[in-house]
Amino acid sequence: MTVHNAASNVRRVRTLFLSDVHLGSKAAKTDFLLDFLRCHEAATIVLVGDIVDGWRLKRSWYWPQNCNDVVQKLLRKARKGARIVYIPGNHDEFLRDFPGVHFGGIEVARQIVHEAADGKRYLVLHGDEFDVVVRNARLLAYLGDWAYDAAIVVNIALAAIRRRLGLPYWSFSAWAKLQVKHAVNFIGAFQNVVAEEARKHGADGVICGHIHHAVIEDIDGIRYINTGDWVESCTAVVEHWDGTMELITWQMPAARAAAVAALPRQAEKAALSDKAQEAA
Rank of each mutant, 00 (worst) to 15 (best):
E246F: 08
A279K: 14
A141F: 13
S173Q: 11
D92C: 06
V133G: 05
N66C: 03
W63M: 05
L16H: 00
E93K: 13
I225E: 05
G209T: 13
N185Q: 14
G202T: 13
G24K: 02
D274H: 12
G144H: 08
R11G: 01
I112Q: 07
V13M: 05
T30N: 00
V52C: 05
W63Q: 05
T44G: 00
A42H: 02
P168W: 02
R138W: 15
W241A: 09
G100N: 00
E196D: 11
V154N: 06
W63N: 03
F98K: 03
Q111Y: 15
L165H: 08
E129T: 10
E115C: 09
A159Y: 08
R162Y: 13
V215K: 12
V10W: 01
A280T: 12
Y122R: 02
Q111F: 14
R223N: 09
A78V: 05
V52T: 13
V215T: 14
L57F: 06
V108A: 04
L18P: 06
V132Q: 09
V113Q: 10
K181F: 07
A150V: 14
L247W: 06
D131F: 13
L75W: 03
L158H: 10
R265F: 13
W55E: 06
G188L: 03
I45E: 02
R164Y: 10
A189H: 12
G104L: 02
